[in-house]
Amino acid sequence: MFLRERCRVLSFRISLALLILTSLLVFALPVKLLLLVAIAITMLFLYVAGFEQLFTIVKHFALFVAPLAIASLFFQIAAGFLNLLLLAITITRIYTLYTVSIIVVKCFSAKELLSLSRGLGPKFFTAILLALKLMHYSALLLNDVRDVYRVNLGYLCRKRFLCRVMLFVVWVRAFVQLFTVKALEVGEAMYTRYRGLIGVERGR
């Protein structure tokens, strides 16, 4: 609730503008100023989400970036042009874009995105909106299906690795089938319920 209130201060529209601006700045600004941008985005994240969440995203970021950084380091050594500054700059850029993207996700508002879409070309924005909502929708669906399989079949093979692999395949198959059906339902919902949003006049 508290988070949403703070996100209301920073509207989705502003956060989206910030993402576009930051994406340009991290590549256009001189290296000395890049650090300032990264600090500013971190401060903004602290304001929007708090310290605990900053810690979590830094942890996730480290897990995601560490293998790439190590691989890059080895590649530089092997190729004979070790440049730690270049590596640091790249990581700072990725970190800045990663953090600003999370700010945008946290401030996401379907209503604002839809009003933006009306101004900036409906098809493009409807496609983005649907992609975002579908991602959210499929995550919920995956969770629901996993819960059912965990309760009903999860106890069958606790220690047998092959059995667990088989059960994993079973629920992934269930998810894929269900997701296909749900994707059709998205079309059905767009066609039957959201016609008004795409400009069809009302009947009665």
Partner: peptide, 27 residues
């Protein structure tokens, strides 16, 4: 032409809005 409205049996369907009032406002 918007003459037909349909409520499906499996109602766990797709919504653009996240909350009830947001969905109603959108529509």
């Amino acid at each position: 032409k918007g003459f037909v409205a349909y409520v499906p049996q499996d109602i766990n369907t797709f919504f653009i809005g996240s909350r009830v009032c947001e969905e109603l406002e959108l529509l």
